Amino acid sequence: MALPFRLESTETDRLLALSDGVIAIAITLLVLEIHVPTIPAGNPAAVLSAVLAQQWHEFFAYVLSFLVIGLYWVLHRRVFVHIDRHNRGVLWLNLVFLLFVAFLPYATSVFVTYPGQFGVAFYAGVQALTGFSLTLLWGYASRKHLVEAGLGSRTVEIQAARFLVSPLVFTLSAIVAMVDPTLAIASWLLLFPLNAVFESRLVTSLEDSSVESENQPH
């Protein structure tokens, strides 16, 4: 009976296929929330450019959500690059992560429809929960020693910090939104430089771990 379970714990193809499918559908649904405006009869076609300009917040929400979901996909891929095997805990935590990813198009729609305090805070809150669920998945896998043996503890910690960057920014913005929604939206721009900094540190740590592994006697 041990053999089937061992085979199951190392089989990740279906898990990754489901994850990639849910993420791809969520990204696709984002663009479906952008509606083509209707020009009233009798108005010149030149009015269309002005009407499209009024939809700037819809385009902004689409691009932002696309990039953030794309970032979560990159981080999710990295989780399973370093995971050697999994258990039921990993499976269920991965499903929790996908639950929030699948909900992001709705959160984006709420933000587009109500871009005030509630809409901004709601959107930021869902984004934060999505990021925290992925962080929890990584933390669980590393604590249960499901990650590859050559991965140093410092690399694991930097990776965890990298996962926390986005949800912490969104959590802060959700709080700020209660006072100033515009400032909360502007704070989302911090996502890009902060993620770039931690990505640089992570790459350096991975390179150092690789050099140390090569220098160890076999």
Score class of each variant (00 low, 15 high):
90 V>D: 05
200 S>L: 14
9 S>L: 04
93 L>M: 13
159 Q>G: 14
36 V>M: 09
8 E>A: 13
160 A>H: 09
27 I>D: 08
164 L>F: 10
157 E>Q: 10
96 V>Y: 04
90 V>N: 01
217 P>W: 01
78 R>N: 15
118 F>Q: 07
212 E>M: 14
207 E>S: 11
23 I>E: 05
113 T>V: 10
170 F>D: 03
158 I>Y: 02
66 F>T: 05
178 M>F: 09
77 R>N: 15
197 V>S: 05
56 W>I: 11
128 A>N: 06
115 P>E: 07
218 H>L: 14
53 A>G: 15
87 N>Y: 01
66 F>Y: 09
51 V>S: 09
63 V>N: 03
217 P>A: 11
213 S>Y: 12
77 R>C: 14
44 P>Y: 07
170 F>C: 13
153 S>D: 14
139 G>D: 07
78 R>S: 14
200 S>T: 11
58 E>K: 09
112 V>R: 01
103 F>P: 00
10 T>F: 10
147 V>W: 01
150 G>Y: 03
198 F>S: 06
158 I>W: 00
42 G>A: 05
104 L>V: 14
119 G>N: 01
35 H>V: 15
43 N>E: 15
48 L>E: 10
16 L>G: 09
124 A>I: 02
125 G>L: 12
46 A>R: 07
198 F>N: 04
120 V>C: 00
13 D>Y: 01
63 V>S: 11
58 E>P: 01
136 L>A: 15
91 L>T: 04
210 S>L: 15
83 I>H: 02
98 L>R: 00
208 D>G: 08
45 A>W: 02
32 L>Q: 07
168 L>Q: 02
50 A>P: 02
156 V>N: 06
203 V>I: 14
21 G>Q: 04
65 S>Q: 04
12 T>C: 05
163 F>P: 02
179 V>L: 12
172 L>N: 01
118 F>M: 11
181 P>Q: 00
141 A>Y: 04
115 P>D: 08
177 A>M: 05
158 I>T: 07
193 P>G: 10
24 A>Y: 03
63 V>G: 07
71 L>K: 02
78 R>K: 10
66 F>L: 11
175 I>Y: 04
145 H>C: 10
143 R>F: 10
72 Y>T: 03
51 V>N: 02
186 A>W: 08
99 L>G: 12
152 G>L: 06
29 L>T: 04
35 H>Y: 13
116 G>K: 00
27 I>G: 07
161 A>C: 13
76 H>G: 00
175 I>D: 04
191 L>E: 05
96 V>T: 11
212 E>H: 13
118 F>A: 14
47 V>S: 09
189 L>S: 08
90 V>K: 00
106 Y>A: 15
187 S>E: 09
113 T>A: 15
211 V>I: 12
25 I>L: 13
169 V>Y: 01
193 P>L: 10
120 V>D: 00
152 G>M: 09
196 A>G: 09
90 V>C: 08
167 P>M: 05
206 L>F: 08
170 F>W: 07
63 V>H: 01
2 A>G: 14
173 S>Q: 05
